[in-house]
Design a protein around this nucleic acid. Sequence first.
DNA 1: GCCGGTCTTTGATTCAGATCAATGCAGGTT
DNA 2: AACCTGCATTGATCTGAATCAAAGACCGGC
Lengths: 237, 237
Amino acid sequence: MKTSLVAVDLHGQGCADCAVRGFSVCASLDQFEMREFEHLSRRVSFASCETVFAQEDTSSFFYNLLDGVMRLYKLLPDGRRQIVGFVLPGDFVGMTTEERHGFSADAIGPVTVCQFAKMPFGRFAEDKPNLLRRMNELAVQELNQARDHMVLLGRRSAEEKVATFLVGWRDRLVELRGPSNMVPLPMSRQDIADYLGLTIETVSRTFTKLEREGIIAILPGGVSLRDSARAEALAAA
Amino acid sequence: MKTSLVAVDLHGQGCADCAVRGFSVCASLDQFEMREFEHLSRRVSFASCETVFAQEDTSSFFYNLLDGVMRLYKLLPDGRRQIVGFVLPGDFVGMTTEERHGFSADAIGPVTVCQFAKMPFGRFAEDKPNLLRRMNELAVQELNQARDHMVLLGRRSAEEKVATFLVGWRDRLVELRGPSNMVPLPMSRQDIADYLGLTIETVSRTFTKLEREGIIAILPGGVSLRDSARAEALAAA
DNA sequence: GCCGGTCTTTGATTCAGATCAATGCAGGTT
DNA sequence: AACCTGCATTGATCTGAATCAAAGACCGGC
C-alpha cells in the first residue's frame, strides 16, 4: 500500500488529470500508450531561479513544462548571455541526440515539470511513429521560431524588437489562457534584453518610448497593449 | 525501353551511385526501402541565382542538396534580408508541416537537388521509425545550429562574427572535402553580411582587419586561414 | 515604519557599426 | 585596348544603441 502511494506520488498523479495532456508530445498517444508513458515520467518542482539543467550537463532528461515559466539561454565564456527562448506550460524541452544540452534552463518563478529519463523515453518512442511524428512537428515548429528570431536579432531596430517581443508573448499567452491585452511579464528587464540582443537600459528606454507613444501602458509585473494595431505594425514592419 | 530510360533519367540515375547516399535522411534506409524511395525522388538542376522555392510558396517539396551551394533567407516587407543558413551537399531542406515554407532558397552557383513531393514522402515515412528518427536527429541538429547563430547575432562583435563564420564554414567544408586551410567562399560579401547581421562595408573592413592582423589572407574566391588558432580563439571568445 | 538590497528608469557621453560617397578592380563585350 | 557593369574596398561622417553614472521605485525583513 505504501509503495503504491509513493509510486503515484513519484509518477505525478498520473497523466489523466494533467493540464498539458492535450498539448505537447502527449497529444499523440492513445490511452494504452499513455498508461505506459505515465510510468516513465516524474513530476519535479523547482523554486524561483533554480536551474533545471545547465549547458554543460549531460542531457539525461527531457522535460515537459506543466506550470510556471522557464528561460533557456546560452552563455559565452566571458559571461555574455543570449536567451534563446522562454518556455510556457505544454512546451517540450531538451529534445536532443547530443551528449550535452548545449544550453541552460532555469525557472522564472516556481516551476513544475514532467521529467523523463532519456534512455527509457528513447526506447518507448523508438517504434511509435505517431510519437516520432509529433516530436518532429514540435522540432520543426521550434526551428521556425528560431529562424524568425534570427531575423529579429540580425535585422531589426530596438523598437521593433521590443514590439515584436510583446506581441509574440501576448499571442502565446492568449493561446494558453484566452484573449486579453494585459500582458504579464514574469521575466526581468535583463532577461528581455538578453532575449532581444539589447542592453537593459535600451529595453527600459524603449518601453518608456512605447508608453509615451500611447502603444503600451507599463504596469507592475507587465504591460497593457493599448494600441495593439500599432504594436503589430511595428512587429511586422 | 524508352519509358525505362526516361524513368531512370527522371528518377536521377538511382540512389545507388548518389554522392550523398551515406548522409542526409537516406542513411537511415535499408536497400529495399531505398529501392522504393528512389521512385519518389527526382533530380532537378538550377542555374546560378535561380530560386528553388520562395518564402510564400506552398511547400509541396522537400529537397536534398546533391551538388552546389544554396542560401536560405527571410525577407522583411521593406526588403531587409536575413540569411538563416547556407546549404551544402547532403543537407536536407524544406522539412515542415506548415502550409508555406516561411523562407526562400536560392542557388549560389549551379545546383542539383534531389526533390521529393511532400505527400508521397509523408506516406512513405509515416510508418518508418528509422527514417522518422533520422529526420528528428537532423531537425534537432539544425535547431542547435540555429541557437548558436542566435548567440552570434545577438551578442557578438563584428570581428567575432566574421571569424566565427570563417571557422564554421571551413569546418563544414573539411567534413565534406577533407582538411584544408584554404576556404572557398562562393557567396558574395552581401550574403555574408546578411548572414551575420552586418553591412557589406563592415564585412569588407573586418576581412581587411583580419588580414592585417595576419589571421587570414584574402584570395580571389575565398580566404586562407593563416592563423586558425587565433581565428578559433575569436570564434570561441 | 524604516532599512538595505535589488531592479528599473533616466541622463550624459562614447563608440561600434551604419550610412553616404567615391574609388578600385576584375571579367566579359565590342 | 577601351568600355562597360557588378562587385569589393576604402574613406568620411553620422547615429542608434552601448556604456557609464546617478537617481528612483519596489520589495521583504525586522
